[in-house]
Simulated assay, not measured.
Amino acid sequence: MGAVRRIALALAIIGALNWGLIAFFQFDLVASLFGGQDAFLARSVYALVALGGLICLGILFKPDEEREVAPRRQRFDNPNYNTEFGEEPDFTKERKK
């Protein structure tokens, strides 16, 4: 993940936390830090959070790069498991040198 996407994700998280504070406690942290909702800095932060959210839409719809693909298994039609139907070596005979 690139630096721009990480920054966008951090801004989206900040926006989500701010909306959570507004919903649960009726407290707008960005507005209180930057001088109210109509202040230029607060509106700039809101705009950056909105841009970060738009960039995160690309992360949402991006396919997984880290997905592991299972290797294709070979199919053996006639394996020899050395059962009673197969030939077994005779180890009782001496080896010829």
Rank of each mutant, 00 (worst) to 15 (best):
S44K: 10
A50V: 02
Q37F: 04
F76G: 01
A31K: 01
V69A: 08
Y46P: 01
I55F: 03
S32D: 12
I59C: 14
V30C: 13
G2V: 06
A39M: 00
I55G: 01
L60G: 04
K96A: 13
R67A: 14
R72H: 08
I13G: 06
V4G: 05
P63E: 04
V4E: 13
N78M: 02
S44D: 07
L21I: 05
R6F: 11
E65F: 07
V45N: 01
K93D: 10
L48M: 11
D90V: 15
A31W: 00
A8D: 00
P63V: 02
E66S: 12
A8S: 02
L51P: 00
S44H: 09
F25D: 07
R67H: 08
I22W: 07
E88L: 14
L60V: 09
I13P: 00
F34M: 01
L9H: 08
R67M: 10
G35T: 06
R95E: 13
Y46Q: 02
C56N: 09
C56E: 05
E84T: 11
I22C: 09
D28S: 04
V49F: 00
L21D: 14
R72Q: 11
L51Y: 07
M1V: 14
E65S: 10
W19Y: 10
Y46K: 02
F40T: 15
K97M: 10
G53I: 15
G2Y: 00
T83A: 04
F34C: 03
I55L: 09
A42G: 03
G20L: 02
G52T: 04
V69M: 07
V45E: 03
Q37W: 05
D28Y: 04
R75M: 13
L48D: 06
L57A: 12
L54D: 09
G35P: 05
Q37D: 09
R72N: 07
E66H: 09
A31I: 00
Q74K: 02
V69E: 11
